[in-house]
């Protein structure tokens, strides 16, 4: 349903040189599929998400490649066609529900606004649809939420309202950018459960963005690992968690909290971590971008960038260990 080929996004920050935030990215999402995008902050996840909706800031000076949504090439659409697409066919849940809602409009009205933006329905009809949706979303007091302003809601309720906005027009793809990071731990698991519920009920495809493999493990079927603007590994969730290939993926997975054997907790005095920092947007990269932090680096690594190697079961990886 969504096919991205050779997508490259370059930024030109004021007074500085051009940098590529997303570099030659290929991937696709089938309808109804839940795909995860994993990576540290600053690796281009959010830029990739925004470019799918063509919501990039004005400093993004170059967008190349192709994004096919069904038979439509998104990069060729005009502003008014994009407006009709956003929210109706592809919608987005942004980071931080605290500030994604209009502070001076009632929550119910805000959700209804999304319907009105795409369907020529009367105000009352829109509001009724919103009420029905809120009931479905497991709000214990849907009526109060409907009439509340965002500041009167808790973090979890706000995130539910944001989710309601994203799905109210039954889009075929929902992009969720770190949808649970700002939430308290117990609320986080409730929201993840809600996503699983929606997946089953609406048959919507999801693109989940997160820095946490453990969160993705709970909701997605397939994981794309992103590093320095490139997708470095791609596989089914179970495969990637059991048997990660790229040293970066291995490093990310080792950082996840584990209770240890038989659920018994044992304190670890030295935590496994990935040394160093991801390259900044202005850093020059020679060869494989992960090379400076890689525990398994070889001679080839600085010479050139590894190519993507396709393996069995639609797995892919960019690393010299597997041919590259």
């Amino acid at each position: 349903m969504l096919q991205v080929r050779g997508l490259t996004v370059r930024y030109r920050p004021e007074g500085r040189a051009e940098v590529a935030a997303v570099n030659q990215v290929d991937f696709s999402i089938a309808s109804g599929e839940a795909v995860g995008l994993l990576g540290e902050s600053g690796c281009g996840k959010t830029t990739l998400a925004l470019s799918l909706l063509r919501l990039l800031p004005a400093t993004a000076c170059e967008v190349r490649g192709s994004i096919f949504f069904g038979k439509t090439e998104l990069l060729g659409l005009g502003e008014s066609e994009l407006r009709r697409l956003r929210g109706a066919k592809i919608s987005m849940i942004f980071q931080e529900p605290e500030i994604s809602l209009n502070p001076v409009m009632r929550v119910g009205e805000q959700i209804a606004e999304v319907i009105r933006a795409h369907h020529p329905k009367g105000r009352q009809q829109c509001l009724d649809e919103v009420r029905a949706l809120l009931d479905q979303l497991g709000f214990s007091d849907a009526h109060r939420i409907f009439n509340a302003y965002p500041h009167q809601l808790s973090g979890g309720q706000r995130q539910r309202a944001v989710i309601a906005q994203a799905i109210v027009c039954k889009p075929s793809l929902v992009i969720a950018d770190e949808p649970t990071t700002a939430l308290d731990p117990t609320v986080q698991s409730e929201i993840l459960a809600l996503f699983n519920d929606l997946k089953a009920r609406f048959q919507t495809a999801f693109l989940f963005i997160s820095h946490s493999p453990a969160i993705l493990a709970k909701v997605v079927d397939r994981i794309l690992v992103m590093y320095a603007g490139r997708i470095v590994e791609e596989a089914e969730t179970t495969q990637i968690l059991r048997h990660p290939l790229h040293p970066y993926t291995v490093g990310l997975l080792r950082c996840v909290f584990e209770l240890g054997d038989e659920g018994a907790f044992r304190p670890r005095r030295v935590l496994p971590s990935i040394p160093g920092n991801p390259p900044g947007p202005t850093d020059l990269i020679h060869g494989c971008p992960f090379e400076p932090r890689c525990p398994e680096r070889m001679e080839d690594c600085t010479a050139r960038e590894p190519r993507e190697v396709k393996l069995e079961d639609s797995r892919g990886v960019r690393c010299f260990k597997y041919g590259g």
Partner: peptide, 11 residues
């Protein structure tokens, strides 16, 4: 403790 995201059954 239960709400700590873990790899759980996958790993």
């Amino acid at each position: 403790i239960a709400s700590i995201p873990r790899l759980g059954s996958h790993a």
